[in-house]
Design a protein around this nucleic acid. Structure first.
Length: 662
RNA sequence: GCCGCUGUAGCUCAGUGGUAGAGCGCACCAUUGGUAAUGGUGAGGCCGGGAGUUCAAUUCUCCCCAGCGGCACCA
């Protein structure tokens, strides 16, 4: 496009309603909006030109399809947020001139900007910065787009001490137009588009938190100081967002874990969970359910050692590729001599298993396997230890001692597809049973650090993709995200508040069986290496239970609820009848409790509701006389009087474990 | 591991250079009630750990540790 020569040609702009407006020469979005009407001019934030979002101030010199973007449009939010980031950067540099800007992209629900500064920002600084941002909005500074020469731009940013910006420009592909946006006395390298002036941003923004972040996301680089913010089209949307955050906080499994007395963590065992009776009841129910589903899908459960010789891990490849995540234990009797060190440092090293796969190969390797034996599916609720970085630990979601619903399928190459299809069907029915009907699939390909030849990777990736196609599931790619021994499928489920979690995985591993000498006798009488499929549906019990707690906000489905029903009398005169109902519930296999506490019924209903007990059976003189119970279900404001035996039967029926047909 | 913030009773949190307080919970007493808090009394704390400054440190300084929010890593 040549704006110089087209200056004399008329420009026809077609609006979304199909009407066309003709201008004598190049025209910008502001002029167009003004031409259409003052209301639109006021609401305009940008303009779409042939599907591309432009600044309102940018001249359009050729015939185009155009649409004025207003705050109501979805793409406006991107512009507002990015402008908000710029205004924040301007405020920061006005207040703290010793700060360099780096990058400031939009993210879900907001934006951040990373700054380079000797002294990181604090929460207190945010208040001051936010105040200055409002002032910059009030100043209504015009935002001007400029195209700069690359060399000049680099020289300029170097001159003003913005070394990170200069580095960014140096790395931009040759031929890219370098654009700079000015607002008032401040300017920044940016692709745009932006609002015509800072005043258009409005006041629906808030700075959220400060954090450290590495330059270019690499832990070898300098630590920058990042400020997160959120920005919305209006105050109402901002308020709604903040409310959403509060609601998410209420579901926090760490908070609910304490309130519901499910588990705790303490510093002497950081990253390892102390499960309380209530929490472990959930665990056992989940384990029982998964075990049943695995058995039904032809898996055999095994149990393998925790502690294995480091020589073993050398052979499996973990010592080279995974050692920094492993807990190493010397095989030595510790010294009891007060003056001597406890350990000599010379002992043979053992390591706690970080994965179950090599041990499963050992079980496979016992005896001779025929091609007729395959596939062999070994499952284990394998307890693994990984030395996760301190900063990574997070409640149940990220722990150092974890139990996977792990299994390894040893199969022939011609069985890969059927095993993959079989697994995907198991996985989707489990997710449906557990309340997660929505999930996405990613095919993760070879990482930089890997074992095996490129040829074997080519083949493995092709095989896995072909098998995935057979399942009929939609999928995307996750380049470079594969395991070190093979490509994998990642299953990401969506929870009740729209977050996604990677839980399930299926990994195609042609390497480990070879490395550990696994073979079977083929139809041809020769030895062949089986293919190994590593797979998990939940991932880890710890994390999955954490996800379930947050997904259900603690209101677990009846079959998982630690206590399913509490029986409690109105007055102590009904204690005997309450106890009778309680005994009948227990006899029927219901996880029931009897609450004979000397409190009013209001108090007891409130107390057990807070504990998220799904059913409260209230009994008094009337119920005792009629052989009924008054059932109050969690979340309901009403109670329902039922014949005792019917109420018990109904609870038993509802509390049955899902079986994949749900 | 890196950056920042925080650490006081079982939980949620006040507070002070002169060794601590509330609400809930807990125990006991009274109360016997109809579906989200009955009233009273009481017990309960090495103020995260260690060093330093000070006549005196929970409070100020430094160093650890842990938790939290991110980053990096990741199930």
């Amino acid at each position: 496009m040549n704006e110089q020569t087209s200056a004399h040609n008329p420009v026809n702009l077609r609006l979304p309603d199909g009407s066309v407006r003709t201008f004598d020469g190049p025209v910008d979005g502001t002029t167009l909006a003004a031409d259409i009407g003052p209301g639109l001019l006021k609401a305009a934030v940008a303009i779409k030109v042939n599907g591309e979002t432009w600044d309102l101030s940018r001249a359009i010199s050729a015939d185009s399809d155009v649409a004025i973007v207003t705050k109501k449009d979805a793409e406006a939010l991107d512009i507002l947020r990015h402008d908000c980031a710029h205004i924040m950067a301007e405020a920061v540099q006005e207040l703290f001139p010793d700060t360099q800007v780096t990058i400031g992209p939009n993210i879900t629900d907001g934006f951040f900007y990373d700054f380079a500064r000797d002294k990181p920002f604090t929460e207190d600084d945010l208040i001051v910065i936010e105040k200055r941002m409002h002032e910059i909005v009030a100043r209504d500074e015009q935002i001007i787009r400029e195209e700069w020469d690359r060399t000049d731009a680099i020289a300029y940013f170097k001159k003003i001490g913005e070394l990170y910006k200069a580095e960014i420009i140096e790395d931009l592909p040759q031929g890219d137009t370098i654009t700079v946006y000015r607002q008032g006395d401040w300017l920044d390298l940016c692709r745009g588009p932006h609002l015509p002036s800072t005043g258009k941003l409005g006041d629906a923004f808030k700075l959220m938190k400060v954090a450290g972040a590495y330059w270019r996301g690499d832990s070898k680089n300098a630590m920058l100081t990042r400020i997160y913010g959120t920005c919305w089209a209006d105050k109402k949307a901002l308020k709604a967002y903040l409310h959403r955050l509060e609601e998410a906080e209420k579901r926090d499994h760490r908070k609910l874990g304490r309130e519901m007395d499910l588990f705790h963590l303490q510093e002497e065992a950081q990253g390892s969970v102390f499960w309380h009776p209530a929490g472990y009841t959930m665990w056992l129910q989940m384990e029982k359910y998964i075990r049943a589903r695995l058995t039904e899908h032809g898996y055999q459960e095994i149990k393998t050692p925790q502690l294995l010789d480091s020589k073993f891990w050398e052979k499996s490849g973990h010592w080279a590729k995974f050692r920094e995540n492993m807990f190493v234990v010397p095989d030595e009797v510790p010294s009891t001599d007060e003056d001597a060190p406890v350990l000599s440092g010379k002992a043979k090293l053992m390591a706690l298993k970080p994965m179950n796969c090599p041990a499963h190969v050992q079980v496979f390797n016992q005896g001779t396997k025929s091609y007729r034996d395959l596939p062999i599916r070994f499952a284990e609720f394998g307890c693994c230890h990984r030395n996760e970085a301190h900063g990574a630990l997070h409640g149940l979601m990220r722990v150092r001692q974890m139990t996977q619903d792990d299994a390894h399928i040893f199969c022939r190459e011609d069985q890969i597809t059927s095993e993959t299809v079989n697994f995907c069907s198991l996985l989707s029915s489990v997710y449906r049973d557990l309340g997660f009907p929505e999930f996405k699939v990613l095919l993760a390909t070879r990482p930089d650090m890997r074992s095996g030849s490129d040829e074997s990777w080519d083949l493995a990736e092709a095989r896995l993709e072909a098998a995935l196609k057979e399942t009929g599931l939609d999928y995307d790619f996750a380049p470079g995200e594969g395991a070190f021994y093979g490509p994998k499928l990642e299953f990401h489920l969506s929870d009740a508040i729209g977050r996604t979690w990677q839980c399930g995985t299926l990994q195609l591993d042609p390497n480990t069986p070879k490395v550990l000498g696994a073979t079977y006798i083929g139809e041809d009488g020769a030895k062949h290496a089986p293919v190994m499929l590593h797979r998990a549906v939940l991932g880890t019990l710890e994390r999955f239970l954490g996800i379930m707690i947050e997904h259900y906000a603690g209101r677990m489905p009846l079959w998982l609820a630690p206590t399913q029903a509490v029986v409690t009398p109105i007055t102590s005169s009904a204690d005997g009848y309450a106890e009778e109902i309680y005994n009948r519930l227990i006899a029927a296999g219901v996880r029931a409790e009897l609450d004979l506490k000397n409190e009013k019924i209001n108090y007891k209903v409130r107390f057990h509701s807070h504990r998220k007990v799904p059913a409260i059976f209230v009994v008094g003189g009337r119920e005792e006389e009629d052989g009924t119970v008054s059932v109050r279900r969690l979340g309901s404001k009403h109670s329902n009087v039922q014949i005792a035996s019917e109420a018990i039967d109904a609870l038993v029926a509802e509390g049955r474990m899902p079986n994949g047909t749900a």
